[in-house]
Design a protein around this nucleic acid. Sequence first.
RNA 1: GGUCCCGUAGCUCAGUUGGAUAGAGCAACUGCCUUCUAAGCAGUAGGUCUUUGGUUCGAAUCCAAACGGGAUCACCA
Length: 633
Amino acid sequence: MEQHIRQAILAAAPELFGAPISESLIQFQITRKDVEGDLTLVVFPFVKLLRCSPQEAGEKLKTWIEANVPGVSHCIVINGFLNIVLTDAYWLAQLSQIQMSPNYGLAPQNSKPTVMVEYASPNTNKPLHLGHLRNIFLGASVAEILHAVGHKVVRTQVINDRGIHICKSMLAWEKFSPVNARGERETPANTGLKGDKLVGKYYVEFDKALQKEAKEIMAQWQSGNFSDTPEAIHHAVLNFEQAKQGKDEKACAAIDDKIKELAKNQTQILQEAKQMLVKWEARDPQVYLLWTTMNGWVYAGFDQTYAQMGVSFDKLYYESDTFLLGKDQVMEGLKNGVFYQKTDGSVWIDLTAEGLDEKLVLRSDGTAVYMTQDIGTAIDRFKDFPDLHGMVYTVGNEQDYHFKVLFLILQKLGYAWADNCFHLSYGMVDLPSGKMKSREGTVVDADDLMAEVIEKAKAMTQERGHLDGLNEVERDTLYAQIGLGGLKYYLLKVDPKKRMLFNPEESIDLTGNTGPFLQYAHARISTLLDKANYQPAPIAERVVLRPEEKEIVKQLAQFEVTLQEAAKGYSPALLANYTYELVKLYNTFYQSVKIVIEPDLEVRHLRLALSAAVKQVLAQSLSLLGVEAPSRM
RNA sequence: GGUCCCGUAGCUCAGUUGGAUAGAGCAACUGCCUUCUAAGCAGUAGGUCUUUGGUUCGAAUCCAAACGGGAUCACCA
């Protein structure tokens, strides 16, 4: 409609304004709720052109539009705004159209190029936590949204399955795991622990041992005993100690941290972990066996967690396969002058012209760094998927700089697709107590959180007691749908870019702007339609729309635009807010009129059709958010 | 210190090419179930949009500075 009026005005511009006008002058917006109208044309831009008051300009446009645009009932001019009221027939036609298209709002499948979406990408040394939940729900939802607007989507993750951090849990398990009567160390099978939890436990064990040993070393240093300490470290420690003179508390604490860092480096246990990494890189059979075994436990654990979350992947990349990638590209880039080499052999890129720094892309010993690997992996992915057009990396905003550099490098290496790479950067999740810190044990475990949320949903659902006729399995399914739906919605309704606060109580709320609120509306409509035995049929043209009804149709008509904006902005939050608005409008309607028991059959049918359309769009939106839509609750 | 992000009601958040009297939810208070699911609806109260300047018909939105918070500046990932 908007487009329609825009074109009509453009075409009639000479008649209206005496000259053709630029399209940008025609600005539409949705009419505010508190005034009459469906569509608003901003009059101010025309005021100069017509050399008259906003009121006069508005009147002129009003007369013209009322006479020339079909579908317009009448217009109202206030405060420099021209509010256009469309006819009921127009809105009824919109509703009919939604009713007749089961894929309303969605673009044809594969009508847009292939996009790869990366999310999750965990380390295999500890379980998933709350931060991963935001990452994964966000990535999974964005993948759904991109799919809905027509892209072919490849879901992927890079599993960080190698490196010193992985060796730490491996070593700790070897050193500290108790041995049972059958001579076995702890395994998921003989402890009943989830694999990722077991491995995570030993990662913590490692850290404990490390801290303890470092503390002992620092105590030695404190007492002036440096007999086991290399000369260079000895000096460094003394220098640091000296630097503390006359500094405030904060500066002293920072210096103490550095000393602690030195002490950690001197520990036996860290040396052993490093040795293990060297052995791993040399493919030592024993270390490799241990590595595959323990990673296998972790994968089994992750699979369980992903299943509970309701997410999946189409293609996995393992860092152990990719960590050597990229060196060739770097050497190639070195030849082309994209990179330069320092005398020690290390390779760098100079991005000072772009306002960034110089960045290392290859170590002096020729080994790869994170950046090297990411360059290689990106290029590899485009080889793996020849029709790939772009990539979305769902990674926290602490890596903003890294991705800025990465995309710039890919561009400089001459890959045109670098422009289609997007860092879906999201803010951290804070707790009411502040930041999550693994050392302080304030990390919220993903499995625990999901279980807790489901448990809470169970208790609250039982309190409400709409469970008659559901068997045990159906009830459990419902509890999970509500609990997880609430959690997902809670994490997705906030703009991804923004840092957010996770309030455990609010995350399981059922009232207000929450997942269960939306699910409840869906369930209520479902049973309503069942009760009415609703069948889609043409809507009588003579019915008059109540304001509450028209508001709903207007919101429904916005679905496609909203979905496209959500895709464009990689923001499920836009969709979440849209859906919440839709449900609020529906609830108002629901409470103010009769539906099933409406005696006028044509009106009854309209209201049922409206309800069905809301259910359809609501179910669609929820599904794009990864939230399930129960048909009763 | 350099670079980047953020600052809207007591709390959590919307407010997307600059548009009308800045909106929700939670918390507080008032009403509404003999009627289609009250996990709901209607209402009251709550604001110097951090501050100060600038741009213009018009600024929460754009620009600049200040203040406050965060991230990042490794031959870590």
